[in-house]
Structure formats: structure tokens, C-alpha cells
Simulated scan of single mutants.
Amino acid sequence: MFGGSKKQIIGLSDQVGTVFGKDTFIKGTVTSQGTLRVDGQLEGDLNTTGDLVIGETGRINAQITARNATVAGTVSGNINITEKLELLPSAKIFGDIKVGTLTVNEGAVFRGVCEMKQGDSIESTESQE
């Protein structure tokens, strides 16, 4: 009962390499190769070749690049996810997104433009035939 919701928010990876706690404020560029979890505030740019988890208390005002992301908090800025982006019911996204796969749970807020990367490759393949 209690473990299930935590597993859902932790999201895509069982091992989080870096955690920014809810009392943490970072201004600048964050670069990582591992999985990041943000429960605090970040202003600037966030780039990881790994996965990103934004907890319910996470507030990000940044351009984001990651492999996969699970969002339960608030993001103001553009997001570029190479594989899967999941917006949990408490998520609020204000900015454009580029994703391979997008999952939006009921209650999530998204204001911006969405570009599906997999759709582009299908269209270009069909137009060449």
C-alpha cells in the first residue's frame, strides 16, 4: 500500500544517482550521465544522458534534456526527451516538448507544443516510398 506510490514517483530507474532535496535551490547548469531526482528548485539548464524524476515538490525553470523523464512537479521551460516522458496527475508543464513517447495522466497540465520524434521518422519513410 505505502510502497506502491513511491515506486510510481521514482519512475523509470530503481537507482537514483543524484537527489536534489526539497530544500535545495540550484541556479546554473546541471550535467549528468546518471539518473537525477529533483524535489527542490532548479533554474538554468538540466542535461542528463540518463533518466530524470521530478517529484511533486520539484520546481524547475530550465531547458531540460534527458533520456526518460517522470514529472510530478512543475516545469517552466522546453523539454527534450529522447525516449519516454510521463506526466503524473500532479504535473504542470509550461513549455514545448520533444519526445519519443508521451504519457499524460488525468489531472496533469500541459501548455505548449508537443513534437513526437517517432512520428517524424514514420512520415519521412512513407514520403520516400
Rank of each mutant, 00 (worst) to 15 (best):
M1Q: 14
G21T: 14
T24P: 04
G73K: 10
A72N: 08
L85R: 10
V109N: 03
E86C: 07
L52I: 06
Q33N: 15
I122G: 00
S5P: 01
E56C: 02
L88V: 02
D120L: 14
N61Q: 14
G77F: 02
E43L: 05
T103Q: 05
N47E: 09
T24H: 01
K98E: 15
L88F: 01
L12F: 15
E115I: 14
L36W: 02
T70R: 15
K22M: 03
E83P: 00
D39H: 01
I64A: 09
K117E: 07
V113D: 03
L42E: 08
I54H: 05
A62R: 00
S5N: 14
G50T: 07
E56H: 11
R67S: 13
T65E: 11
I54C: 10
Q128A: 15
T125I: 09
L42K: 04
F20T: 07
D14G: 15
T103H: 04
N68C: 11
I81E: 02
T48C: 12
I54S: 06
F94T: 09
P89W: 09
N61V: 14
E56Y: 07
E126S: 03
Q15A: 09
E56I: 01
Q118S: 12
G107A: 05
K27I: 07
Q8L: 11
D51K: 03
K27N: 11
K117L: 15
R59W: 03
I81R: 12
A72Y: 10
T31F: 05
I10E: 12
I10Q: 15
V38C: 10
L36P: 12
F25Q: 13
I64N: 11
T70A: 11
G50Q: 06
E123P: 00
G3A: 13
V99D: 03
D45P: 01
R37I: 08
D39E: 14
V99W: 07
G17K: 09
F94V: 10
E83C: 04
G95W: 08
R59E: 10
G77M: 10
G50M: 08
L12R: 13
G77H: 02
E115V: 12
G119M: 12
D120M: 06
C114R: 01
T18C: 01
I10D: 11
I10C: 06
E83Q: 14
A66F: 12
S90A: 12
V16A: 09
V109D: 00
Q118F: 04
R37T: 09
V99E: 05
I54L: 14
E43W: 00
S32M: 02
I81K: 13
E83M: 10
G112V: 04
V16T: 14
R111S: 05
S32C: 02
T103D: 07
T82H: 06
Q128D: 12
R111I: 08
T48A: 08
I64W: 01
G28L: 02
E106M: 03
R59H: 13
G17D: 15
V53Y: 00
Q118E: 09
G107H: 03
V38N: 04
T74Q: 11
K7D: 13
D96R: 08
R67G: 06
S32E: 04
Q118H: 07
T57Q: 14
V38I: 15
G58L: 06
G21I: 11
